[in-house]
Amino acid sequence: MIHLQNIHKSFGNLEVLKGIDLDIAEHEIVSIVGPSGAGKTTLLQIIGTLYKPDEGCVEIQGTDVLRLSRREISKFRNKHLGFIFQFHQLLPEFTALENVMIPGMIAKRKNKELKEEALKLLEFMGLSDRADHKPSELSGGEAQRVAVARALINHPDVILADEPSGSLDSHNKEELHKLFFQLREAMGQTFVIVTHDENLAKTTDRTIHIVDGKVV
């Protein structure tokens, strides 16, 4: 599913990743842990095609993404990858339903079909009655579930989550962690989760430890 080989990445004189080798299987839920500044988020962004490494190979579903043009990478990202961020990153002027639909609109999907699917995802998340609410009218847990629905709207192969429960209280953290496993069971996604949450890391299929830019 995901194959990384000899990944190096520097920002100026700071070498952040120092030769990462990593394979993640289809349908696996993997957590990436390590101290602040270890390179976890940079690695996630490289998997997500948001950064290019200075050196190395990145293959997702058999595609060498580093060989794609900028336009091809954008299309690949929109179709195959879903993103969940710590602070939701919902657009405040749009409703929950509209926020979920945005990646599908970028993919130029038919509006009727897209809206129906977005409503089904919100129903799956237990948010049918919040579809017309804007982010300011949602609780933290509700906003994060809307963000998860948005990540799923284009049926991505991989969900990439950067500290997804970092801004949530203990109850909503637990609910979000359960949701990931429910989604894997129902929809078959692969999850790569950067987290400082030890409880979440313990529940995943595998935990990858990164220290000083290397897998240990």
Rank of each mutant, 00 (worst) to 15 (best):
M101G: 09
F94S: 03
P92S: 09
K108Y: 09
E93I: 11
I84K: 07
N99G: 10
K112I: 13
N99I: 02
A96Y: 03
K112L: 14
L90P: 01
P92T: 01
M105E: 15
K108A: 13
L90R: 03
N111Q: 14
E98N: 01
G104F: 04
F83H: 03
R109V: 10
K112V: 11
L91F: 14
R109T: 11
F83M: 07
L91N: 11
E93C: 03
M101F: 06
G82Q: 04
H88V: 00
I84W: 00
I84L: 09
M101S: 04
R109W: 09
I106P: 13
Q86H: 02
I102D: 03
I84H: 05
K112M: 12
F94P: 03
I106H: 13
M105H: 12
K112G: 11
K112Y: 10
F85L: 09
E93Q: 14
V100N: 02
K108T: 02
N111W: 10
Q89K: 10
Q89M: 10
Q89A: 10
P103K: 02
P92I: 02
E93Y: 12
A107Y: 11
M101Q: 13
E113F: 03
R109D: 11
A107I: 10
H88T: 09
P92Y: 08
K115E: 15
F83V: 05
N111K: 15
Q86R: 06
K115I: 10
N99D: 04
M101K: 10
L91A: 11
T95R: 07
E98W: 08
G82I: 07
E98G: 04
H88L: 08
K110N: 15
M101W: 01
F83Y: 12
K112W: 10
K110Y: 02
F87R: 12
K108N: 14
E98M: 06
A107W: 08
P92K: 00
F83W: 06
F85A: 03
F83K: 01
L91T: 13
N99Q: 09
T95I: 07
N99V: 06
K110T: 07
M105A: 13
L114C: 10
H88P: 00
V100G: 01
F87P: 06
F87C: 12
Q86I: 06
I102C: 01
E93T: 13
